Amino acid sequence: MHERTSLPSWSGLATLDDDAIPLFSSALLIARDEYPGLDHAVYEQLIEAHTRALRPRVDSAAHWPLKMMAINRYLFDEQGYAGNHEAYHDPRNSYLNEVCERRLGIPLSLGLLQMEVARRLGLGLDGVSFPGHFLVRLPVDGGVLVMDPFNRGRPLDVDELRERALAHLDGRDLDDQVLHQILHPASNRAILVRMLRNLYAVYVQRADWDRALRCVDRVLCLLPDDADALRDRGLCYFRLRHLRGARDDLARYLQARPAAGDAERVRELLIVASGERSRLH
């Protein structure tokens, strides 16, 4: 059964085990921060409509790859969901309501929608926090079928996966064991955190510190002790001149990671924030 009556709460998500987190409704919860009037039932009904339309096709397909092919054909060819190659960094690509309305997204948001539909049809489609672009994977015949939701669900072979991963590994070796680890399924919590961090990066690039702060604060709802998120929230507070918040978060980051590569820079910011307080008083 899927929860169809209300969205989860941020405080409630913090207490759930990773895989107990409802992925689709939690992604809509992220969108509601930007769209307070969002009617989640509209998008729940859309996913249900996709599921109903697909069920006869999926049930009639004999093998799992053929079932997945039917889902991809429906979503990407018939319904027109597509990767937004022209405006990849548009924040609307990460808000699930906009993805459903505009039929445009980035790998993660398209993959999340693909996963939700597939799971409701009985396919164990998982997300993969692959370096660079998010992917999805389906267990088949003792192996896995790995697909690229940004490119209409196109299957990827081992050579292409290796080539894609190497571009993000700074020249490190990539043997079969490492590739297998990279292709491990991502938890629902990890997927939501990646969505929030994508949005955080977009808003930092735009110097939209209020929205960047909101995103990283939500990361900390999901991962309360995450050192990187504490640092990032502290930097947002610093930009917004909320110096007490900046001092608290940056100090906690340094306590957690005193030898981090950016520790010296963070210490300098902490000194500046403390000095600003002295001048204000």
Rank of each mutant, 00 (worst) to 15 (best):
residue 155 P to L: 08
residue 180 H to G: 14
residue 142 G to R: 09
residue 28 L to S: 04
residue 232 D to I: 00
residue 170 D to C: 04
residue 252 R to V: 03
residue 25 S to C: 09
residue 204 V to E: 11
residue 123 L to M: 14
residue 247 R to K: 12
residue 13 L to I: 11
residue 155 P to C: 12
residue 237 Y to N: 15
residue 30 I to N: 00
residue 94 S to G: 14
residue 257 R to K: 15
residue 257 R to T: 07
residue 187 S to Q: 07
residue 29 L to P: 08
residue 179 L to M: 10
residue 227 A to W: 00
residue 9 S to N: 06
residue 130 F to V: 05
residue 198 N to S: 09
residue 144 V to K: 02
residue 233 R to A: 12
residue 191 I to F: 01
residue 72 N to L: 11
residue 100 C to R: 00
residue 29 L to D: 08
residue 53 A to I: 01
residue 190 A to Y: 01
residue 256 A to Q: 15
residue 31 A to F: 04
residue 257 R to A: 10
residue 161 L to N: 03
residue 55 R to P: 05
residue 106 I to C: 00
residue 15 T to Q: 14
residue 136 V to N: 15
residue 80 G to L: 05
residue 116 E to T: 15
residue 192 L to P: 10
residue 122 G to P: 09
residue 266 V to P: 01
residue 22 P to S: 11
residue 71 I to Q: 13
residue 175 D to F: 12
residue 57 R to N: 02
residue 81 Y to G: 14
residue 109 S to M: 06
residue 226 D to I: 05
residue 6 S to K: 13
residue 219 V to W: 04
residue 235 L to S: 10
residue 105 G to Y: 00
residue 185 P to L: 01
residue 115 M to E: 07
residue 151 N to D: 13
residue 201 A to E: 13
residue 140 V to M: 06
residue 81 Y to N: 10
residue 30 I to V: 15
residue 189 R to S: 13
residue 218 R to L: 14
residue 66 L to W: 02
residue 234 G to S: 10
residue 42 V to R: 14
residue 206 R to T: 01
residue 144 V to C: 10
residue 29 L to N: 10
residue 179 L to Y: 09
residue 139 P to S: 06
residue 279 R to E: 09
residue 185 P to Y: 01
residue 42 V to F: 02
residue 249 D to G: 07
residue 10 W to S: 07
residue 82 A to N: 09
residue 107 P to Q: 08
residue 32 R to T: 02
residue 71 I to N: 08
residue 159 D to I: 00
residue 39 D to F: 03
residue 241 R to D: 12
residue 151 N to R: 14
residue 87 A to Y: 07
residue 173 D to M: 03
residue 281 H to Q: 09
residue 233 R to M: 07
residue 109 S to C: 03
residue 107 P to D: 05
residue 118 A to W: 11
residue 127 G to P: 05
residue 88 Y to P: 10
residue 211 R to T: 14
residue 245 G to A: 07
residue 231 R to I: 11
residue 50 H to N: 12
residue 59 D to H: 05
residue 60 S to Q: 14
residue 123 L to T: 10
residue 258 P to Y: 03
residue 107 P to T: 05
residue 84 N to G: 06
residue 224 P to D: 06
residue 140 V to W: 07
residue 43 Y to P: 05
residue 220 L to W: 06
residue 94 S to W: 12
residue 251 A to E: 13
residue 275 G to F: 01
residue 151 N to T: 01
residue 143 G to F: 03
residue 143 G to A: 15
residue 130 F to I: 08
residue 182 I to A: 01
residue 182 I to N: 04
residue 253 Y to K: 15
residue 274 S to K: 01
residue 126 D to H: 13
residue 222 L to Y: 02
residue 204 V to A: 06
residue 19 D to G: 13
residue 133 H to E: 11
residue 205 Q to I: 00
residue 268 E to F: 03
residue 50 H to W: 15
residue 269 L to N: 03
residue 94 S to Y: 11
residue 208 D to W: 04
residue 36 P to Y: 06
residue 52 R to A: 11
residue 93 N to C: 08
residue 274 S to N: 08
residue 53 A to M: 05
residue 41 A to F: 04
